[in-house]
Write a protein that binds this DNA or RNA. Structure first.
Length: 717
DNA sequence: ACGTCTACCGTTTTT
DNA sequence: CGGTAGACGT
């Protein structure tokens, strides 16, 4: 076969990575260096020249988006279907494994997937049954604890509490929660991974089967793998397996969620002939932007080391804008975007990035005012919306009566006269009999154990679900859904709500039926259409609803910007305590993760980057005088320019960075100083000269103060 | 069973 | 300051 198209257009390092014949290959791929390209081309190379069967290849990603993209690109490069390859997310592949071997994994064939929201509900219920006060023991915390344990491969029996009440209590919750999941046939996200790991660990036959099958394992975004994912990969990749991992330690921004960058070093250690290839040529950004990114990330200690470069021109300097406050910050961005659009550029080519979602509000206001269309990423995904989940809960219950989570959700939705105390009776009965809620409900109806009205309502509910299944299940998916929406009166209930929300809800319900119509069962071989659809709904929660067709400005957090690129990028709120965030400033490793986030943000920009900060910001109703983010100060002065024209209130932040431009009084704006009485603060402003010289300092202890330099004993620190 | 009030809380979120 | 979850009152 002619391999030209596979190697064409690749640079030296990329080509080396694609054709490497090492058993273990580590590709350290900088931002915009073509890592997906390498992965896709390597798969094609293995098939076309090494005669590896597609059947023997597994490629793992973190997001559905990435796995779809990989699959499509492999198919178009090879010119044939990639369906015999296992390409998917960690969760998707784990799910596939568990479905194929449900019995071995000790799961019912009908098991359903809990998303985080469902999981929290189950945990709440379990904790209530344990009589744990939810002020003292927040369910969120228990959820976090359970998932953390699972991410580390731990079951309740593996947890040492050493008398620690926090750990021992949460371990009990974990245990009870597992029991609840087992009776309901429910599996949460972390459980998918852990169960899939245990399945292979404890079943030699299966393990060997898959180890023999997969001759090549490729993993994307390896810096984001957690403990259990790493362990799972190790299990599958036996000695004969080639393993390629691609990642960037500088873009690891999910440590707070269990991702372990150390896994990269660990890989290097544990896979003996591992070869490391660095992709450092960047095809995205200007020289200036890359230099800034390199300079910022160079301040991190824990790095494998990498320096991005480009053939591209230097481009424009990075613009800094010191806004008076967050409104003015938003106003400035809106004005710049309007200019940009007027020059014939698309709105969709520019992005506004921020550290936390709360910042989006003000920005939205000003875009709205200027009538600039925008789209905010984040928020509820399609399959996470209440009306959609209600419908799905009915379907889940129809197909799996054991599903207690679904039962709880819809037993009184829409309201049918089953109040808190009636439902509590059902729960109690289930507890006593060690049965599911569904079984308990039937028993209660048979015994007429509730008031006549409530008994009738409960019986009506049971009939509704039973009948729904009997009548609908032979029909096509979308009809089943349509009929469910109608027969349960969900549509009616939401139609009664008022306002724009109700309209959106009705649209979403209609959309759900059409999503089912377009649903491709092929992606889930061997599953019944409904089971496949329900799994799909949990595993791929879908896009955040917005008109993607319209040309609009993209607004999102820095986290969700990873992997994307835009010609024009604004990063708002470049302020200490906001970015780096207050909660991540104390510990060195957290601060380094913030810095990586800054690195991710900067490297999103292709042509032009604006960094903004406000001198005054209202935060939770309180006025604050933040200091300029250290990440701005870490960018060399020659790469940036201050765009504020009127600098009566403030001087350029980097005025003092070269000796000649030292602030008149020996202090620079943004500099930290110490005062004998007020402690540490940051210089906000200064005015006057000689004996009249005054500086405005924002002290951590007492806030902003003007001080006469001649009297105040300020020390630089 | 529904609507109103209040107390609380307030990074980031691939699945 | 603003959103929301749960309590409380009708």
């Amino acid at each position: 076969m002619d391999v030209t198209p596979i190697l064409d257009g690749l640079n030296k390092a990329q080509r080396e990575a694609v054709t490497a014949d090492n058993q273990a290959l580590l590709v350290l791929a900088g931002a915009g260096s073509g890592k997906t390209r390498v992965l896709v081309h390597r798969i094609a190379w293995l098939i076309a020249t090494e005669n590896i069967s597609p059947h023997a290849i597994m490629a793992v990603t973190f997001t559905n988006k990435a796995s779809h993209e990989m699959k499509n690109r492999v198919e178009s490069l090879l010119g044939r279907s990639a369906s015999s390859m296992w390409i998917g997310t960690f969760h998707g592949l784990a799910h596939r494994l568990l479905r194929a071997h449900a019995r071995d994994a000790e799961l019912p064939d009908t098991f359903q997937i809990l998303d985080s929201d469902d999981q929290l509900r189950v945990i709440k219920r379990v904790m209530r049954e344990m009589n744990l006060d939810d002020n003292e023991w927040p369910p969120k915390q228990a959820q976090w604890f359970i998932n953390k344990q699972k991410d580390e491969g731990k079951r309740p029996k593996d947890i040492q509490h050493n008398g620690d009440l926090f750990i021992s209590t949460h371990t009990k919750v974990y245990h009870a929660y597992q029991q609840a999941c087992a009776t309901g046939g429910l599996v949460d996200f972390a459980e998918l991974l852990l169960k899939a790991f245990e399945l292979l660990r404890d079943n030699q036959h299966l393990r060997e089967h898959y180890q023999e099958r997969f001759l090549h394992l490729l993993v994307d975004e390896f810096q984001d793998t957690n403990g259990i994912q790493y362990a799972w990969l190790r299990l599958i990749s036996a000695s004969n397996c080639g393993i390629t991992i691609v990642g960037d330690d500088d873009q690891s921004i999910y440590g707070w969620r269990g991702a372990k960058i150390e896994n990269i070093q660990r890989f290097d250690r544990e896979f003996s002939d591992a070869k490391t290839i660095r992709l450092e040529q960047n095809y995205r950004s200007t020289g200036t932007i890359l230099k800034a990114a390199n300079a910022v990330i160079a301040n991190n200690q824990e790095r494998m080391g990498k320096n991005l470069w480009t053939d591209d021109s230097e481009g424009e300097p990075i613009s800094l804008y010191a806004a008076f406050n967050e409104q003015e910050e938003a106003r400035f961005m809106a004005a710049r975007i309007a200019d940009w659009h007027q020059q014939g550029n698309a709105y969709s080519e520019c992005a506004i990035l921020y550290r936390s979602n709360a910042q989006s509000r003000v920005i939205e206001e000003f875009l709205l005012q200027r009538q600039i269309p925008y789209r905010i990423y984040g928020g509820l995904k399609f399959f996470e919306r209440a009306e959609v989940k209600d419908t799905l809960a009915y379907l889940r219950l129809m197909y799996n009566n054991q599903d207690d989570a679904a039962f709880e959700r819809v037993v009184n939705t829409p309201p049918r006269g089953l109040g808190q105390k009636s439902v509590e009776k059902v729960r109690e009965m289930a507890r006593i009999d060690q049965s599911t809620l569904w079984e308990a409900a039937q028993k209660i109806v048979a015994e007429s154990a509730l008031t006549p009205k409530a008994t009738a309502a409960l019986s009506g509910f049971i009939e509704l679900v039973k009948l729904g299944y009997e009548e609908f299940h032979p029909l096509p998916l979308s009809e089943q859904i349509q009929l469910t929406i109608e027969s349960t009166n969900l549509m009616e209930m939401y139609a009664k709500e008022k306002g724009e929300k109700a309209l959106a809800r009705k649209e979403n319900l209609a959309e759900l039926a059409s999503a089912a119509r377009e649903f491709d069962v092929e992606d889930y071989p061997d599953l019944s259409p409904m089971t496949a659809f329900l799994a799909h709904a949990s595993l791929e929660a879908g896009d955040t609803q917005a008109e993607q067709y319209e040309d609009c400005v993209q607004m999102m957090t820095l986290h969700s910007a990873k992997g994307l690129e835009f010609p024009l990028v604004f990063i708002a709120g470049m302020e200490e305590k906001l970015f780096p965030h207050m909660m991540s400033m104390e510990e060195a490793d957290k601060l380094e993760e913030e810095r990586r986030l800054a690195y991710v943000g900067i490297t999103r920009a292709m042509k032009k980057l604006y960094l903004l900060y406000a001198e005054k910001r209202r935060l939770w109703g309180k006025e604050t005088y933040p200091a300029v983010s250290r990440f701005i100060r870490e960018i060399p002065a020659q790469l940036k320019e201050e765009v504020r024209l009127n600098s009566q209130l403030s001087q350029p932040v980097f005025a003092g960075e070269s000796e000649s431009a030292q602030g008149a009084n020996g202090f620079n704006l943004g500099q930290f100083v110490e005062h004998p009485k007020f402690g540490v603060g940051v210089i906000l402003n200064y005015e006057g000269e000689g004996a009249q010289a005054r500086v405005q300092v924002n002290f951590d202890s007492v806030g902003a103060k003007w001080l006469v330099l001649a009297y105040a004993k300020l020390e630089a620190c």
